[in-house]
Write a protein that binds this DNA or RNA. Sequence first.
DNA 1: CTGAAAGCGCTTACAG
DNA 2: CTGAAAGCGCTTACAG
Lengths: 340, 340
Amino acid sequence: MAQKIKLSTIAESLGLSTATISLALRDSPLVAADTRERIKEQARAMGYIYNRRAASLRTSRSGIVGVVVHDIMNPFYGEILKAIEGELDRRSHTFILSNHYDSVEKQRNFIEMLLQLGGDGVIMSPAIGTPPEDVALAENNNMPAILVARSMEGTALPTYRGDDSYGISLATNHLISLGHRTIAMVGGTDQTSTGRDRYQGYVNALRKANMEVDPDLRIPGPRSKQAGFEAAMQFLSLPQKPTAAVCWNDLVAIGFMNGIARAGLIAGQDISVTGYDDLEEASIATPALTTVWNGQEEVGRLAARALLDKLAGSHEPDGLHLIKPEMRIRQSTGPVRPRT
Amino acid sequence: MAQKIKLSTIAESLGLSTATISLALRDSPLVAADTRERIKEQARAMGYIYNRRAASLRTSRSGIVGVVVHDIMNPFYGEILKAIEGELDRRSHTFILSNHYDSVEKQRNFIEMLLQLGGDGVIMSPAIGTPPEDVALAENNNMPAILVARSMEGTALPTYRGDDSYGISLATNHLISLGHRTIAMVGGTDQTSTGRDRYQGYVNALRKANMEVDPDLRIPGPRSKQAGFEAAMQFLSLPQKPTAAVCWNDLVAIGFMNGIARAGLIAGQDISVTGYDDLEEASIATPALTTVWNGQEEVGRLAARALLDKLAGSHEPDGLHLIKPEMRIRQSTGPVRPRT
DNA sequence: CTGAAAGCGCTTACAG
DNA sequence: CTGAAAGCGCTTACAG
């Protein structure tokens, strides 16, 4: 590497000013077409690398969007991320990703870091217990925030997520229609809007069918495959002998199905199991998982668009945007069969 | 937000110079302890946000490390990423993540973007067909690169990955020791070092046991759960009626087990199946998957350390660093049982 | 121990 | 259509 190529290097080599080079490289019509081509060609030949920090310092725009979710390794967020990535790519923004693992501190560090880098905006699935000041920190420093997947109290920020309460009632109703009368709810935590809403939707569906709501049929907590797997043992030892399980999400449901399989029970035959999200994996699980489509792809795409539009100056409406979930019936649910 | 707080704002409010503020905020011993505290307190009170672009423009160091892999949603890379994240966090570097989906172009765009942002270094699992010029682009612009998971021809870059050939031979030997004589290899592509090495390891193990190598027993291609699931049908219709499958990785193996389950066959009883990687998921699969530990966590940690050490000026040795894989025997393999 | 000044590499009014 | 000059917000020699 001989020497750092910058605008002025190109300018000198061509006998032009840096202003002209700058304009030409950004396709300004202020520069004559042939000059522009000559400049671009020279830049390429010299191996010029645009210095975004310098540009961003001057313009106070960086083209960087931050995304922070609970855990990018969780395919639910992965599918949202993929949609965001697609949308951002098309409008040539870079995105910086981070997990917060539900640590408010880790999330705040990320927001600060993003601010230091001059991030244009942030898309977040807020960590449990996020104080309103932390999102205000972003907004007050001219970095708009959009929420995905989870709602947050005390903010009017644009929020994109599925209608959890409605969605889980679809799954519960499906089990009721198959004749199940003792239905457990496995997983989820009251600390997130998702957990609260899904439990509420399950309760509502039971009530509407005039079925008794037994709080002991709830096994709260599990949110991963591993935890769903372990919850199966707990489920099987429940004195009420439930014949079906409404799982909090697909991961829990898949782990749960593996768990009951260890006890020689088959989902869809011995125990009916529903998931939630309709991950890519749901349809190839054994048995194929009956679940609720939760629109990850749409959530991601709409959130990214909303942010980019906001950055472009349009005034998007704040508040909650709910995606309507849909039932996906497969093999993990079937007619009730009494447990022995 | 009243007004942008910068070093000079703090300096004026305290009757000091920006140089002193700058030094104090970075804990320089050149500033008297009490002045330093006073400055820090004032910065906090005013809501000062450090402008990294300005600093980076001046110092030409950004604290940003790029990481680009095939697909961050793939748990194999996810586990590597998690280890990198942990290491980078501890040494307060930000990391920017990207998928290349084996597109050389997408990978090159990412490298360029990183260069524009002033990235200090890059960790990559090179896309299939990456030309040496693309990594040279990084290196020549003073952004060192470290390779993970895959080797690349024509470079002497530091590379961290498992010993694929040795690892797959462990799995193959395990099946041979259980009495299997017709063993298929499912998945992987000759386009990556991983694919080539694993097939070679399988072939070597068969040869060493004086078993015939039948190229038709290879089902190349699958690298995902979905593809493993589909490959099961192909496997079951093989005229040689293999009794065991060495799968290219855990994802393929899990999909494959689900696939044969649809045909009423149970892994470990009817067909023996081995995976590769030992993902967190392997042990809770049904049945629990016999696989080869591939050290994702170590690969990530060592690669991140090597990069940070290099950035700190130490001269790490280039070349290949192999992690030694280990067998993990679970329930998906068992004594041979002839197929009907 | 603290300050004045230059410079990192861009972009943007402003002239011409 | 092109150029000269200021300035974005830091850090770093260099003085004192």
